[in-house]
């Protein structure tokens, strides 16, 4: 585990440790949320940039992993909002922010995921935004309810409810079982 105090002092060695430990998780979580390798690499770079800049003000109230997941979700949301806003530019700016976030199905994503994974990914992406985020963190990264709650900045009971509703939705489809 990287030493937070040394990270705060700008230690390159500790940053490298942090990168090696968390970059695969950050990259893959962002990949499941965004679906495009180039975008995901840009977002991952932004996440680590934010970590370097913000580590001095990191209060260690949560684990560094949770903090980094929170940054990742924010960066992914920010990225999708900007992308969706650009798409809808000129239509109705006033309602842009109330629109659901849409991730594209890229050929690369279809290619990388196996067939069963692809079907599951599609179902998860058909869920409402918060259920989708909770389910991605739960299924992909084996985060506990507490960790997901901390990353999404909502209560554990809200996470339980989101995951329950997501499961109910996913059970309804079940095409990946065939």
């Amino acid at each position: 585990m990287p030493n937070i105090e040394l990270l705060r002092l700008g230690s390159e060695r500790e940053f490298k440790k942090l990168f090696e430990l968390y970059s695969p998780r950050i990259l893959n979580t962002a990949f499941y949320l965004l679906g495009n390798r180039q975008d995901v690499e840009d977002v991952t770079q932004e996440v680590f940039k934010s970590v370097v800049v913000g580590v001095a003000s990191f209060k260690a109230e949560s684990s560094i992993q949770t903090w980094m997941y929170r940054i990742t979700l924010n960066k992914c949301n920010e990225f999708l909002r900007t992308k969706n806003r650009k798409k809808r530019k000129g239509i109705m700016i006033g309602i842009v922010d109330s629109q659901p976030l849409i991730t594209e199905e890229t050929p690369e994503l279809v290619h990388i995921l196996k067939e069963a994974e692809w079907l599951l990914w599609k179902q998860i992406h058909a869920l409402p935004e918060k259920q989708r985020l909770a389910m991605t963190l739960f299924a992909m990264d084996d985060l506990s309810y507490q960790e997901i709650a901390a990353a999404m900045n909502i209560s554990v009971s809200a996470i339980e409810s989101l995951l329950f509703r997501a499961r109910t939705q996913l059970k309804k489809y079940k095409p990946y079982e065939s």
Partner: peptide
């Protein structure tokens, strides 16, 4: 079922 989602890039 969800452990299917384990592809890592």
């Amino acid at each position: 079922d969800l452990t299917l989602l384990k592809t890592r890039i």
